[in-house]
Design a protein around this nucleic acid. Sequence first.
DNA 1: TAAAACTAGTTGCAAAATGAAATTAGTTTA
DNA 2: TAAACTAATTTCATTTTGCAACTAGTTTTA
Lengths: 141, 141
Amino acid sequence: MKELKSSCPINQYLEVFGDKWTLLIIRDIMFDGKRYFNEIRESDEKIASNILTDRLNKLEESGIVIKTKDAKHKQKNIYTLTKTGVDLMPIMIAMSLWSLNHRKVSEKDRAHVSELVKGGKDLQDKMSAALLKEYEAISEN
Amino acid sequence: MKELKSSCPINQYLEVFGDKWTLLIIRDIMFDGKRYFNEIRESDEKIASNILTDRLNKLEESGIVIKTKDAKHKQKNIYTLTKTGVDLMPIMIAMSLWSLNHRKVSEKDRAHVSELVKGGKDLQDKMSAALLKEYEAISEN
DNA sequence: TAAAACTAGTTGCAAAATGAAATTAGTTTA
DNA sequence: TAAACTAATTTCATTTTGCAACTAGTTTTA
């Protein structure tokens, strides 16, 4: 068991997401509909497979993602967000807004986020509900 | 110049805050009133001085923090949040809320954050305004 | 005014994390 | 049966981190 630097909530967040890759995995599952190892691996940022394996395992240990076998493809795993994972959405949106205002972001990404922001709490609730439903379909059995 | 992995807003955020320390520095300045190198160094998480030097420089380069000389103590620097830095507050609050709900947080920290959340947008606006005023006092001259 | 303490670093070095490429073992498709 | 797919694992070079000691200038204290 790794020891914690402190129990401050910001530090608690950092214990899980204080690296360059973990949050990109959440983004892929949450906003880009990716569910398989290789789908995530092929994202723009080109995460190495050893890092992806490591981070997915840590996310599973932390109860943020759950790994299930694909019934149709025995060697394929499906990675789904848990409630704890879905609850990261407000953080992701706040980050996106900050980057939109203060960092260089491409027009394509800008439009993508603007849509999400314009949809407001309504759209975000709808998206959360859909993700949560997916999780509940898995965990009931 | 370091190259960027992508222009995705989440990745843009990670280019600056994708490590275990940078956000703790922001927390110290934003919520704990710390303004000096050694005040930040003495926080619970015990950041090493070489890392602190490195991160403060990067935050200054990114326009998130501004460094000024203390008029009363020639060898002391004052670190202040810029507008870009103050605008991180919604992210910090969203992170704190998530940790409160899903991670182990001490009673003391819990009370601290609850107060901030109960204060609502009003309190957060007031805090942002105070930090921004500090920055404006420095940048006008 | 001399000594001690404070301030913001810098330096050196060992340990850990990262990243790229190659490899692997099982599964599915052609 | 061969080729392709899937989720890793392994190896190894590079980078980042963390700790401790040190430094140069400034301020306080006796």
